[in-house]
Simulated assay, not measured.
Amino acid sequence: MTPALNDALVSTWVTGWSRCRNYDVHHDGVVHAALRSGHQTDDGQEWEYILANPDEASLKAVSAEVQGHPGRLLTVVGTPPPVPADVPLQALSTGEMLMVVDMVGQDVEAPIVPEEFEAEVQRHDPDWFLLTITSTDQHAQGEGAVAARGRVAAVDGFAVFDRIWTSPDFRRQGLGSLVMRYLASLVLEHDVEQGLLVASADGQALYGHLGWTELAEVTVYGAPDDHTANPSHSDAD
């Protein structure tokens, strides 16, 4: 059964997404905040605030915080009410989608990796995995090239997938599906029933083919003239 979009679900996604990226995370009522590591602002702290279907009061409060600190971000999951005119923001990233899948019935065995590639798994605490696919000497590109990667974290019965990426030199070789299946087999070591991820516009077709369902739009806002690099939630570094 597809879960409903609510604050608890978004809180779970934020926890898993932050875990996969080594971000500090803080939950304060309906406001979820992640400190984006490796991103610098004038005050040295680039916080991203995440709200699920925010009401006008919470949206205005967080919008004022973002507008007053260029480099900080507001991410809205769901359809937000209009941004207050006295606290202007601009959309920095659109077209992303929170998606969900039933993990029951997913293959618990790691898929067979073609001889042109090899898989490396790194296990991290608490409960997340990094998968890297590299080429072998059997591939036309030669040995040792990073072809694809992805991450997944287990959080409160959910598997949160993140940074599913394929190198442009290795696309259309089935690696996106391979990474997703391999990550699913890893995270099923834990008691997870549903999968969550935020998909880019380009990635939504792949995930739809793999059985994922669209749940809610994801939009990232910043202060006017904010030029924050890569504010998306689905892309690799």
Rank of each mutant, 00 (worst) to 15 (best):
M103G: 01
P88H: 10
A147L: 11
P70F: 00
H26Q: 13
D127T: 08
V113T: 15
F170R: 06
S63T: 11
M97D: 05
M1S: 15
N53G: 12
D169R: 09
D43L: 12
D162V: 06
E46Y: 06
T166D: 04
L89N: 08
V192L: 06
R163E: 14
G95N: 06
D102G: 06
A148M: 01
A154E: 04
H39V: 14
T136C: 10
H233P: 00
M97R: 13
P54V: 05
V218K: 00
F170M: 10
L130K: 11
T136K: 01
L98M: 15
A154R: 04
P3V: 08
E96A: 03
L197R: 10
M97F: 01
A184L: 02
D169I: 00
L131H: 01
V218L: 04
L197H: 00
A223C: 07
Q122F: 08
V192P: 02
L178S: 04
H32G: 00
A52H: 05
A205R: 13
V220P: 03
H139I: 07
L9K: 11
T12N: 11
S37G: 07
P54N: 08
P231Q: 07
H124L: 12
V76S: 07
S234G: 07
V198Y: 06
T134N: 14
H69L: 10
H209L: 13
E46V: 05
G157K: 07
D24I: 05
T166F: 05
W212R: 00
L73G: 03
D169W: 03
R21T: 02
A184H: 07
M99C: 02
L35G: 11
H190E: 14
E120V: 13
L131A: 04
N6I: 11
L186C: 12
S135G: 05
A199W: 04
A154P: 11
Q40H: 14
W165Q: 11
Y207Q: 07
T15N: 08
D28T: 08
A201L: 12
S93F: 08
A229L: 12
G68A: 09
L59E: 04
V146L: 12
D226T: 04
Q173F: 01
L197A: 10
E143M: 10
S58E: 14
I50Y: 02
